[in-house]
Structure formats: structure tokens, C-alpha cells
Design a protein around this nucleic acid. Structure first.
Lengths: 224, 224
DNA sequence: CTGTAGTTCAAACGTTTGTTTAAATCGACT
DNA sequence: AGTCGATTTAAACAAACGTTTGAACTACAG
């Protein structure tokens, strides 16, 4: 048997990795349906058939990209949630918000150059119309989701299930929204010529804004 | 000249209307790219070429659907904004939120059977990956958007431009989110068998929740 | 009845889509 | 050197896409 895969023409069996990286970037920029396998293969400097060889299909590739991006996020959320529960006393709303939102936002920082692409990709997937794709994503997030809803319920004992669900959905949606960063009115952002450094600072500001906004909304913005 | 259009095989030149209604519904359910002209024509009981005859192209059809849905929303927003400005004194945050959000949410109620489809359609368009589509929508909303940002700035004089933009983007995003109603964890919603009446009641509750959440976030959740 | 403009229709256009095939090429091991 | 399994490649596949065509059909005006 061969075992690893250092192979032919190019670098190694890094073809698989290149396909993942490129898919992540193109799916983030153009969406899943908007990205053709041919454009993807070209950009990855690979053959069209390589996609069907390494992953089963285009959807298999999507699943792999989602899994690679979400696995660490899920783990980190689980870790933080457990840490909050064992540290005695009920966690505060802000602690819960941070435990959910920050692992998502950290996608950007923990992946070097690929960071922005990963985050926008996940945001896009969340908003995709296709039930198939949403199901695919839900399967990845499902287990942690249940525990979070339970924790939210404990932290907001005065509210009914619908209200809790609204709060959770809002948190999830606003996170995805910020990750997709899709429709900030462009003119305004471009008024001041932004440098690379400015972008990083703006991201940091937006992170705290998001957490503050969500915390305030959950505490002061839910009926009863 | 002919003038009107009562015509051949079927009812009238209601073909145009049927195409608009069907496109609205299918675009809402499957997204723009996910809807083929053939499936659309079948569902509308029309010929494929009818789309290119009545509208110039598939994108022309999309533009027509967006315009039909957004024109009254824009007008209503403009009307409310003007009414707030002439009634003396600065409008409150909640008044501003309502003036922006309610015309959007009213889409559901003001269109009879088509209501839910219209709202979800607009939500979907807002989250579409394609720059073309987002541009198309921006062109419809642009003029009112500027006036809203000015009003927000006046109502929140202590905050800088970035913060105002964050607040506006959040408002826009959460409205679209609720309109798309795309990723409420399905299991939870279905725990209690919901009747038609329950859905209407739940929508009314979500409306107030959204307004309260946004108001609270804008007042208590923005730094400085 | 004839003429004309508006609308519908079946059919075909040329691309592009995701997927499959079968041969070529590779590195590792005996 | 030679075999084997893993990988890459060019080529072709059928299906679906948005769009265009030209004839058929409708209704009304003269």
C-alpha cells in the first residue's frame, strides 16, 4: 500500500488541501450554487475530476469544507459552555453570549490568510436558500445547539420557550450576519480610505459592538 | 393599436401577473439562482418564452418583482420619516425603529395570500451572494437609506459614524432575518403542533420582540 | 373581409452544469 | 527492474440552463 500520498506533477497530495482552500474562498465570494466546479478547479490549479475523486461530489466537497471550519468552533463552544457550568453559580447573559459568539468570530483570527474567507463562507452557508445545504450545516451544529438553548433557558427563567428561541435565533443570525458582512452600505465604508490596519481595528470594534448589542437586547429587549 | 391586452388561450394578459406572482413565490422558496425559468413557467402555466417577452430576461423579471414589492415599502418609510420630522422635536429611537421595521413587516399583511412569499422573497434577496442582485436591490432602497442614516445620527448624537452604521446594518439585517425566517431550529418550532391561527399570533409576537430587541440594543448596546 | 399589432407557442439555439470514463503518470516497495 | 495502488489527466457524457426564433393564434380597426 501507499499510505500517504506525495504524488505527481505538483507539490504533494496537497491537491486535496488546495481544493478545500479554494472552495472555501470561492464559496465565500460567490456562494455555493454560484461556483462552478470548472472555475474552482482552475483556481485550485487542479483537474475537474479531482473534486469527484477526493470528495464524492460537489456537495461532498461542501460538506468537507463546512466540517473543517466548524469542528473547532463546535469544540470551543462546548468547552466554554462546560467551563461556565462547572465554575459554580449561573453564568451571566454576557458570558453566554461570549461563549457562543466569540468562537465564531475567532474563525477569522485562527486561520491566518484564510480567516476572512472561512468566516464569510460560514455566514453564507447559514443564509443559503437550499434545504439540503441548511440541513448539512444543521447536522454539524445540532448537538451543541441543544445545550445552548438549555443554558439560555436557565439564564432567562422568566421567559417562555418562544422568547428563548427568538433570542437564540437572533444571536445566531447576527453572528452570521457579521460573518457574511454582506450589505453594509458600501458608499459609507469607502468614504474614508481604509488601510489594512484599519480593517483589523474595525473588526475588533465590531466584535465588541456585537456582543454588547446582543447582551443588551437579551437583557432589556425581551418581553416580560 | 391594441391598448389593453385581454388575449388568447387563457384568462387575459394576466400572464404577466401570474409570472410575477409565481416568481415571487419560487424565488422566496428556492432563491433566484435555484429557480429555473422552466420550472417557473410550468408553475405559472405559461410558456418559457413568455418571461423573455414580458420582461427582458430572468434578471428583468427579478427586478420587476423587487420593484413591485419594495415600492410601497419605500413610500411608507419615506412617509413615516417625514411625519416624524415635521411633528416637532427629535424622534425617539423606538419611533425610528418602528418607522423602518414596520413597513417591512407589513409586507406580510398587505398582500393577502402572497404576503409570506413577498416577505421571504425580500429577505432572500438581501442575503443573496451575487453582487448583481445586491446592487439591483440597493438601487431600489438607496435614497431612503441616506435619510435614515441621517435621522439615526441625529437621534444618537454621542456615537460616531461607524457605530451608527453598525446600528443601521443590524436593524436591516435583523429585519431581513425575520423576513427570511430561514433557520429557526425546526425541531423546536414543531414540538407544539402549530395551527394557522398560532402562526399569525406568533408573527405578531415576533414583530414586537424584534422592535423591542432592536430598540434596547440601540439604546443600551452601543458603546460610549 | 383584410390588415395589423399584441401575445402565445413548440422547437431549437449554443453554453454551461456536475459527473463519469479510461488511459496515462506517479511514488513506493519487492 | 518491475509490479501495484494511488492519483492525475483529457475527453466525453447526458442533462439543464437562459435565450432566440419564426410561425400560429387572438382581437380589434378600417
Amino acid at each position: 500500500m501507499n499510505g500517504n500520498g506525495a504524488s505527481s506533477g505538483r507539490s504533494a497530495a496537497a491537491t486535496r488541501e488546495r481544493l478545500l482552500d479554494t472552495a472555501e474562498r470561492l464559496f465565500a465570494e460567490r456562494g455555493y450554487e454560484g461556483t462552478s466546479l470548472r472555475a474552482l478547479a482552475d483556481a485550485a490549479e487542479a483537474n475537474i475530476a479531482a473534486v469527484n475523486y477526493h470528495f464524492r461530489s460537489k456537495e461532498g466537497l461542501l460538506q468537507a469544507v463546512v466540517a473543517r471550519a466548524m469542528t473547532p468552533v463546535n469544540a470551543e463552544r462546548e468547552r466554554r459552555l462546560a467551563s461556565l457550568n462547572t465554575s459554580g453559580g449561573h453564568p451571566t447573559i454576557e458570558q453566554l453570549v461570549r461563549a457562543f459568539v466569540e468562537p465564531g468570530l475567532d474563525l477569522v483570527d485562527h486561520h491566518g490568510d484564510r480567516g476572512p474567507a472561512v468566516a464569510r463562507f460560514i455566514g453564507r452557508v447559514l443564509f443559503d436558500p437550499s434545504p439540503r445545504i441548511r440541513q448539512l450545516f444543521a447536522d454539524q451544529v445540532d448537538p451543541v445547539e441543544g445545550r445552548y438553548l438549555d443554558a439560555l433557558r436557565l439564564a432567562l427563567p422568566a421567559h417562555d420557550t418562544d422568547t428563548i428561541l427568538f433570542g437564540y435565533t437572533t444571536m445566531l443570525g447576527m453572528l452570521a450576519l457579521q460573518q457574511a458582512a454582506t450589505f453594509t452600505p458600501v458608499r459609507w465604508r469607502l468614504v474614508s480610505g481604509q488601510t489594512r490596519a484599519d480593517e483589523a481595528a474595525a473588526r475588533e470594534e465590531d466584535r465588541e459592538r456585537l456582543i454588547a448589542f446582543l447582551t443588551a437586547g437579551l437583557i432589556h429587549g425581551l418581553a416580560r
